[in-house]
């Protein structure tokens, strides 16, 4: 029984690691910031759920399970919020999505970003970064 739980838990950990790996491939291969955020944040929360669930199965019902639950709660709270903030900041700084089907959104975003920049009179930070 315990061995079976360990096996299932280990399998879940490996599945979570594979999901995270998949997200890593997405972050490397996707064309622009928004798709990369999509890839990273979805797989991070999913991978974290699988890995922590697997570890909880391995540890059984102890204090460590509670701590694993806490880690899960914090990851589930912070990762989506950080991804939201990141995409928000990138969009308001004038980053436009680069995928072909988003041409309408691209022109919209360009207009929005221009008026936004004029209103706040802040400098675009991407000019300071290397290409």
């Amino acid at each position: 029984m315990v061995d079976a739980l360990h096996l299932v838990g280990g399998g879940l950990v490996v599945a979570g690691a594979l999901l995270t790996l998949l997200g890593g491939v997405g972050v490397l291969r996707f064309p622009d910031v928004y798709t990369r955020i999509h890839a990273a944040s979805l797989t991070d929360t999913g991978g974290a759920t699988l890995v922590l669930l697997g570890l909880a199965l391995i540890s059984g019902l102890t204090l460590e399970t509670l701590k694993l639950g806490l880690v899960w709660v914090f990851v589930m709270l912070t990762t989506p919020a950080a991804a939201n903030a990141l995409a928000n900041a990138a969009f308001s700084a004038g980053h436009t999505p680069r995928i072909g089907a988003f041409q309408i959104m691209k022109s919209l975003a360009a207009g929005e970003a221009r008026s936004d920049t004029q209103r706040r009179e802040t400098s675009d930070d991407d000019k300071s970064s290397p290409p």
């Binding site: 914090f74 709270l77 912070t78 989506p80 919020a81 939201n84 903030a85 928000n88």
Partner: peptide, 16 residues
């Protein structure tokens, strides 16, 4: 504003 998500998350996290 667009920062409702951040504010709610921060309110939850600060006491924790």
């Amino acid at each position: 504003d667009h920062h409702v998500v951040l504010r709610v998350t921060a309110k939850l996290l600060i006491p924790l």
